[in-house]
Each structure stands twice: as structure tokens, then as C-alpha cells.
Design a protein around this nucleic acid. Sequence first.
RNA 1: ACAGUCGAACGGUCUGUCGCCGUUGCGCUAUAAGCACAAAGGAGGAAAGUCCGGGCAGCACAGAGCAUCCCACUUCCUAACAGAAAGCUGUCUGCGAAGGCAGAGUAAUGCAGAAGAAAACAACCGCCCGCAAGGGUAAGGGUGAGAAGGCGGGGUAAGAGCCCACCAGCCGUGCAGCGAUGUACGGGCUGUGCAUCUUGGGAGCUGCAAGUUCGCGUAUACCGACGUUUGAGAGCUGCUCGUUCGAGUCGGAGGGUAGAACGCUUUAGUCGUACAGCGAUGUACGUCAUAGAUGAAUGACAGACGCCUCUUUCUAGAGGUACAGAACCCGGCUUACAGGUCGACCGUUUAA
Length: 135
Amino acid sequence: MEKKFGFPKEEHLTSKLIIDRLYKDGASVVSFPLRAVFISLEPQEKQPAAAILINVAKKRFRHAVDRNLLKRRIREAYRLNKAPFIDELGAMGKNMAVAILYIDNKHSSTEYLKRKMAKLLAAIIEKEKKECANS
RNA sequence: ACAGUCGAACGGUCUGUCGCCGUUGCGCUAUAAGCACAAAGGAGGAAAGUCCGGGCAGCACAGAGCAUCCCACUUCCUAACAGAAAGCUGUCUGCGAAGGCAGAGUAAUGCAGAAGAAAACAACCGCCCGCAAGGGUAAGGGUGAGAAGGCGGGGUAAGAGCCCACCAGCCGUGCAGCGAUGUACGGGCUGUGCAUCUUGGGAGCUGCAAGUUCGCGUAUACCGACGUUUGAGAGCUGCUCGUUCGAGUCGGAGGGUAGAACGCUUUAGUCGUACAGCGAUGUACGUCAUAGAUGAAUGACAGACGCCUCUUUCUAGAGGUACAGAACCCGGCUUACAGGUCGACCGUUUAA
């Protein structure tokens, strides 16, 4: 049985090539204080449905401790909310690379981030569906 | 008891749910490898700033000269240092324990300098001698950080180390100290700061995105300049000399890759004991093995307990719980920090 709430290394986005493409061509969705940049990829074997990158800008939080705390909270928010998102992607037969950026200058609680994360992921699916319908 | 100085060490604990990282064990599948399960681990005193020093790595290294940069009381420690220890001299703060700051040399040149009469072969006012011309004079004057070493006495026409006592500085000798230096005696008679400079010691350059190996992939197609002993160009620290290599090199334009492993954690290592030393530290023996990520793990959430402050119906409530996150590794420095602990010492008060 697959673990529902895991976040193994395969789901981290690490390829420099894909990251460059993502920032260049990716579509964007905002659910304040989160912003997602994403791009759909050709499905490949042995690849998870979604690869995620979390980023908190040094410009907004000067200390590494603050950035780490936010990245961890965002990661938890994603980990606990990803199941429906993955299912949808599976249904559409797509792989996706997503960068999640934090665009506030203040800290946010985990509870708040969870709610916003659910919204954000739903918005990605919606936008991608529209995209498919158009093309 | 209160207030303080210096030094040392610490800087949360536990439970539950869901996760992350590498290690080890075991099982499964057909090797490679992957998957599942389990176990024990998984940020700091500053991990920070990246300011010094070293290890390590690559490249370079016949030699000479010039320049550049860093250090500067003494002895000592160290792998090394701009660091530490123990001292020395001057000065400032404090009743004190203590603490801060400065510390190679000054031969030559320059600056100070819009002050002041004068910044070192001085003479504006003043004082003295003199009819005057002129001469003597650093005691008094205002300026300045600094005015002919300070202060008192003698002395003198008035004055002056001109002479004397004491003090400061300089030189010499003796004594004490490894030494900086201190001290005693003697001597002549003495202006300040800064820069350049001088003396002594030191410095090759670049940093783990170093570097090594494997893998993937391509293209020198094209254009321009110079050139093969009439030597393009490159290396040798920044320059010069000198020297070595040398048949391609440089620029434009364009193409490909950006995955993995090693480096990577065992060390100038931790802790303990003994010995040596005032001390930094060293030696010997024993002991322990303790993060290794790479778009970057070491967590999120909930609860309980500590600790601190305030309130209080006196056993509860409210609030707070810092600074801060490894990135090759060490030794320092600097900066940030809720809270409390220990040791030595100092002052005041009380008691004995």
C-alpha cells in the first residue's frame, strides 16, 4: 500500500534543466501568501506524478532560521494536502513540476498555510484543465 | 545580606500522531539495483560575521633587481596567527577587586602655519646698560597640543643650568632580572606631534563551485587578425632583466553538457588521571567514536512538566521561555543572546 502522506526525495524537484524551463515558461497561480509556478511534463516511467520545489526568498527573510521554519511549514502543508492533487493528475495522465513560492514578508501559522495550500492545488488543477480544453 | 570585578561552564525535558536524511542489520525479487521492515543516530556556543591563521587540494617555482602588502615593548605557548599566557613602561577611570588606551627607531626631508613677536643661528612688548647709535636678556606678556626641562634658592646691571638642592628626560658604569625594565652612582645640559622614511621579521597565486574518477554529448562548420628561426603567442607573483616552452594562438559567431561517485568526516579529536609549568600549554597512560545534506535532511502539530515575571480568593490564573541553523576541516577574533549555575576576589553594613 502506498503511503498517503509521505514526501520522499523523488518528489523533490532537483533537475536544473527542468527548473530553468519552469521559471521561463511556467504558468502561475496565487493563493496569498503562496504563489505556484508550474509546468506539465511528458509522463515518464518511474517518475512521480508531481515534483515540488519550495522557495522562501532571502530578500524577505534575512535569517536562515526564519526561512527554514517557513519551508518546513509549507512542506507539511503540501504533504498533508497532496493526495487529491495527485489523484487528479493521475486521472488526467499528466506529470507536473511545481515551484511553490512564499510571497509575504510575515510569518504564517501552519493551520493557515494548510487552508491556502488546498486552495492553491485546486487552482492549479482547474487552470490546467482549462488549458487542455483550449488546446 | 546587598552592591560589584574577573574567570569557568550551561543554555530546556518528556509523551503521542504524521514525516525527512544518511548508516547498519535482515528479508524479498533474477545479478546490477530496487522495495519492505527493524534498530541506534541526526545543528551551535556562538553552527553567525567571513576579520585573521593553519591543514588539505590544484597550478606555479634556475636566478637577480626594483616595487607592493602585513607585523612591531619583553619573554613565552602554538601547526600557525593580527590569537593566548605571564610580565614591563606611560597614561586614564574606579574607594577597591579590576579595567580601558598607547608602546621598534628618528639620521634625513616635508607638513603644522589663516594662531603667535618667535616653531630653533629667534627678540614684538617688557626688563637692564647706554646721551644716542647700539648692545645684553627667555624671568613676565598674549598664541598654541608644544615656547628653550620643571620648581625653589643663590647669583646678576637685568637675566640665563651661570651655580646649587630636589624632580623629569638623555648618556655611561655597577647591581637585580632570560628580557622589556628597575635601581644606585657619575656626567654633560635637554622643544612637540604627524607623514614620508629607516631598521628588524614575514608574504607565490587560487580556493572543496579546490581537485580526482566515471557517465552523457558535440563541431571548430563559418568570419577576422598575427605567425612557424625575420618566432605569433604562452609560462615564470606586480614590473624590469633574464630564462624556458613554442606551431599554432587570439577575437567574433555558434554548438554540447550541467548526472553520479570520491574529496567527506578519525581528528593540531573528546573525556579522565598523573607529571612538568605562576600560566597559556606540553608529555605519558587509559577511554570514547559522536551529523554528512547538495534547489540542500535534522521537522510540523498537539499535550504535559520545568524555569522566570505579574496577579491571587493560596492554589490556581495570565504572560514569557533568548540569540540563532552545519555545507571541506581545525585554532582564534568579533558580534547577538531569555534565563539561571559555580569559583576566586573587592566594597559597605550587621552579627560573632
